[in-house]
Write a protein that binds this DNA or RNA. Sequence first.
RNA 1: GGGGACGUAGCUUAGCUGGCUUAAAGCGCUGCCCUGUCACGGCAGAGAUCGAGGGUUCGAAUCCCUUCGUCCCCGCCA
Length: 580
Amino acid sequence: MLRTHTCGELTEKNIGQTVTLCGWVDTVRDHGGLVFMDLRDRYGKTQLVRSGAVTDYKSEDCVQVTGTVRARPKGTENLKLVTGKIEVASDAVKVLSAGAPLPFEVQKSRQTNEDLRLQYRYLDLRNPDVQKNLFTRHRVCQTIRRVLDKRDFIEVETPILTKSTPEGARDYLVPSRVNQGEFFALPQSPQLFKQILMVSGFDRYFQIAKCFRDEDLRADRQPEFTQLDMEMSFLEEDDLFGVVEETLKEILKDTPGLSLKTPFPRLTYQEAMNRFGSDKPDLRFGMEIKEVGTMVGKSEFKIFEDVIAAGGGVVAGICLSGGGDISRKDIDGLIEFSKAEGASGLAYFKVTSASALDSPIAKFFPAVSQAELVNLFGAKPGDLLLLIADQKPKTLKVLGALRLHAAKWKNIIPGGVFNFSWVTDFPLFKYNEEEKRWDSEHHPFTAPNEADWKKFKPSGEFGKIRSRAYDLVLNGSEIASGSVRIHDEALQKEIFETIGLNAKEAAARFGFLLKAFEFGAPPHGGIALGIDRILAILLGLDSIREVIAFPKNQKAVCPMTGAPSPVSDRQLKELGIKIR
RNA sequence: GGGGACGUAGCUUAGCUGGCUUAAAGCGCUGCCCUGUCACGGCAGAGAUCGAGGGUUCGAAUCCCUUCGUCCCCGCCA
């Protein structure tokens, strides 16, 4: 009887059986008439086939082998690369589809020029190492659906062709043929639809949703990406954090050898900025920022004195463990880096003893101050102190960047660690210098911290108002962002007024949402998790392109299909569009 | 829009302070040899207008300018 197997399914139990195997030829070895091949299935598993004298096939041909499973002869059974103890002695090898000469070796595609990989993505994806990423992605999505279904979430598809609401990122626009001169936009996120679903009473919604943003690309940013979008009614932050933590815990269970402690630690935005100079702090290592203002304020170093005297200025720094042996050239590199980040300079001190510093500017600091500095940072001889003096926000930002830069350079960030944390209490607004007005930091439907709103709104101190927005951070990457929303019509109007959106404009953009809110909107909130980013980090990959089947390159072009591409005049005419 | 890196056989790279290069190596490819190999081994061979264009020079893969392509970062990403 004929039985069909994939390579990975065959074991010693199959010895004696006649099987048909289909797959791709991984390698062929010819030993003077005795020919062996490794046949590869879709899991990247290979099976050794002893194929007699048949040689009219080669690497990456798609073949069908019929033969008998049998034990390997003594001395050849302990092999690493193929199923060790058995082999298939073929009676017939049929080439189902011959492979053309290869542009690169499939097994080594990860070492190949990425442009070529993407151009021949189908071959790149034959590489088991690359294929594994998509299998993991599938597994993660199944886990998400299982966990959320069990928790009574319902997955709802929202439109891909939708309304342009030009805020935030640029929209991808789609011209309408039926309504010439009018455009759909591809969704930047299902944000408004999921809030409307709350109004409809689906109080637990999720969607594994494609989102589109027409902005410049990065290793962790593609024009189309996937997010796990969620929204819940009648929730408090803790409810949502719990669901997300449970989901991630289950996801990490799929990855052997990893465990996850919940609940995740929480930091406020202010804390994150003060301690790490970032709203997405990498907590895998210390090197926290310390403000040193008062003790160096007593120094005779004029630059520091002036900054502090100016008001709003601070002196703060970090301690680079073991950085004391830094060369003059590398110091210059750090100074240049700091300046590129906006600092006017960088002060550095090599720690020479438990109480003494070595630096071109050390002479301006009395021995007491030097000892205090060493003490403050808990520095050891051989460490390097890096200080920035400027207005507080800029100082923190530069030190945050410097902290990451120096840690990467010194290779002190541990690998194989997954460090999740919540960052809460983001500011509600940020000041737009160009437009001379306040903008929403997150989006205009984000609920303010109630106490802050009451306290600072009347006095117009909008910058001090915290919001109920939160981010989830993994190893220094923002992997999720969400908020408790506004469900009160009057409050929503006040927010619009604050960001300079009059009733008419608000109605034109979000009228459908505001209208929906008139009919009994429940308190609600939600979050969106970047699936691509999470996968890339969990799999230890540098780019989300590795976890996307058919990604775009840095110029937002698909090297395989050549998209985007010009269209015919006829198509344009039908759409009523003229190209300049 | 700005800063940086890279571009040399099908692939990965070396050479690049100008001439010892008739551009080198590994992998892959082709042919021959080998009956237990699995990163097989041995022998032989094909394969490169050094991304493109221009310039400097007696002489350019190498220096200069322009241009194209890819990647990383800043800006941008509510």
